[in-house]
Write a protein that binds this DNA or RNA. Sequence first.
DNA 1: CTGATTGAGGAACGATCGTTCTTGACTGGT
DNA 2: ACCAGTCAAGAACGATCGTTCCTCAATCAG
Lengths: 152, 152
Amino acid sequence: MGRPRGFDEQAVTAAAAQLFAGRVYDGVSVDDLVQHLGVHRNSLYKVFGSKRGLYIAALRWHLEHRLPRLAEQLAAGVAATDDSVLDLLLLAGVERAPVDTDVAALVTTAWQTLGQALHRAARVNGTSPTALSTLLGERLLARAAGPTGDPS
Amino acid sequence: MGRPRGFDEQAVTAAAAQLFAGRVYDGVSVDDLVQHLGVHRNSLYKVFGSKRGLYIAALRWHLEHRLPRLAEQLAAGVAATDDSVLDLLLLAGVERAPVDTDVAALVTTAWQTLGQALHRAARVNGTSPTALSTLLGERLLARAAGPTGDPS
DNA sequence: CTGATTGAGGAACGATCGTTCTTGACTGGT
DNA sequence: ACCAGTCAAGAACGATCGTTCCTCAATCAG
């Protein structure tokens, strides 16, 4: 019955997460999403309901698929300097969590995951645990360094 | 010659800074500014040129009038937990600096001021200096805790 | 093949954005 | 008193926002 779906929902949420990690929520328009995701407006609204629905789906996907790997690396003592996994969480925590309860809840769970990973790393290394705030602050400073020709 | 100005430019920039500290740049509309600042559209555009001009003026005012006091407190070892001076810098660094070179430059000077204050505090206390990233990260976590009925 | 159902494509909606224009009231210098 | 110049007030602009609607092509069950 009916025409089959022409895109992968997982791939779409992943691409959306990447977009939302680069710019502010309001800075990512639905037109941007349609263009970069290769999915039509109708399909997005059919599947995710709204721009916010897609955002939350992307954030949830990020927490489920990208965050665990980062947590493992942190727990193993890897200095994840080049990792951009934190960017989406950074933006979500700064700009969305204060005005969106659901985002705040998701972000809180991410903090817990990362905090536990940092404690595990400290237990292994025998050093005092790196604070989650320090980890986030370092990424913040890296982002704030200035405009970098980001892929649009 | 002409009608005298009916508002205080300093007070306006201060109020604008407070608004921009609470929400994202795109989340503060010109209507919001007009309403909360008690200044008419025309006057804002006459004096500041654009919304961005007002933003940068507010940020500059913040760096000049609010930041030094925070730096002093930090250097004196005061735990400035309740201070909201960092909020504007936090937002500026996360969302504006990556897309606005002028903002990035201003924010960078703020980081330097704060970093030096933290080093002075460490020299006084005889402890290792608190990282700037930790300071910012702590404020980030406080903001990300969730929606709080902020004064609109 | 036929009919029903769904996605793709794109135009169109009202709302709101930042900005500008028009009009009239007020003030200071001559 | 008068005129030049500034401010106040609000309507209006084009652009863009998120969202919805309408039409057609593509697909599967019978």
